[in-house]
Design a binder for these strands. Sequence first.
DNA 1: GTCTATAAAGGGATAGAC
DNA 2: GTCTATCCCTTTATAGAC
Lengths: 199, 199
Amino acid sequence: MNTVQMTKAKTRVLDTAQNLFNQHGYNSVSMRDIADGLGMKQSSLYYHVPDGKEQLYVEVTKRCLEAHFTGITDAISRFNDLETQLQAISRWFFSRPALHLFNMMEHDMAELSSENQHYLKELAYQSLFMPLIEAFEDAVARDEIRFVDPEQFAGMFLTIIEGVSFAHRNRHSMLPLDTMADQMIDVLMNGLRPQETAE
Amino acid sequence: MNTVQMTKAKTRVLDTAQNLFNQHGYNSVSMRDIADGLGMKQSSLYYHVPDGKEQLYVEVTKRCLEAHFTGITDAISRFNDLETQLQAISRWFFSRPALHLFNMMEHDMAELSSENQHYLKELAYQSLFMPLIEAFEDAVARDEIRFVDPEQFAGMFLTIIEGVSFAHRNRHSMLPLDTMADQMIDVLMNGLRPQETAE
DNA sequence: GTCTATAAAGGGATAGAC
DNA sequence: GTCTATCCCTTTATAGAC
């Protein structure tokens, strides 16, 4: 994954754009909104991003997904059991602005050219799903959980993360984020524990 | 909940708008798109919807949420145990176009006036969360599951439904929707089963 | 109930001065 | 690196003919 060493100014542009795209979605954010956030005129933005809005979104999303790949794989490598790994991954997610993964993949990316769409969807799969799938596979191999389709439960875990973030943003959620996530992970792990074909 | 008896033409307008709003999100759908879907000119649409796009979205979403309230409460009332109830609710959801609940609540509704926003968010809570919360409470009372925050797990169940729909739409998902949902519900119920403070 | 025409505003993008 | 000015297109919405 290339890291071309970005100028400070470019980084600031990407940061501002990322915040806005994340909060409101691709179509709801105008170049003027981003320029306003940077304190410059809309046309000045094109000095930093000559290729326009779509390319800006692609760059922002690429950087974001690559950061998540690093964060997730790091979290996994620090521990040897699935439950602790999942807790660590949840902490990584909560330390960053919410991804709005489903919205990103189904609504934002639908606005892009089919090449960009395909590129970013594949990158999302490699960055977010693959490390989790491996973690679930390893846990099955260690007999820590019963056999399940790893892809299915990698997806389930990501939806839980998104759901917990959502609940925390929208509801008078009594509990801290971390506690909510741990409770969810506890139920999930408890539900996945190997069984002695009881009853 | 008022049912004012709608004309066939108005129903067709709402159906078309609902499909488009659901698939692409509020901001990505223009009045022209909806008119095209109906085979009429953009301006003709204002004969059916004199109050414009925002009001159209509110009507569409209101009708959708009320239908879900009926579908969910019916599914719950047909059975006496939580696992079967959740399966029945999942079938209701899968029989309808995907809600995209999170996107709806965080992105689409953010574009509306604060009055409409508040109205629809409250309606969504009453229509989707409340029946589920009661079902979880009753299951705790029957000692079918261990005590948990009902709101939290009502939310978790909704995210699982959305996640399963997402997986089915986006991935070479080998399994039928119903089977995937049942597996998720099985893990969830298994994780929530009362425990004898083992170990 | 649907049309054409049009107003008024907002969007992405470029040219050229400083 | 940022600005003003401008182009061209899309969008929401209204007026008025048929």
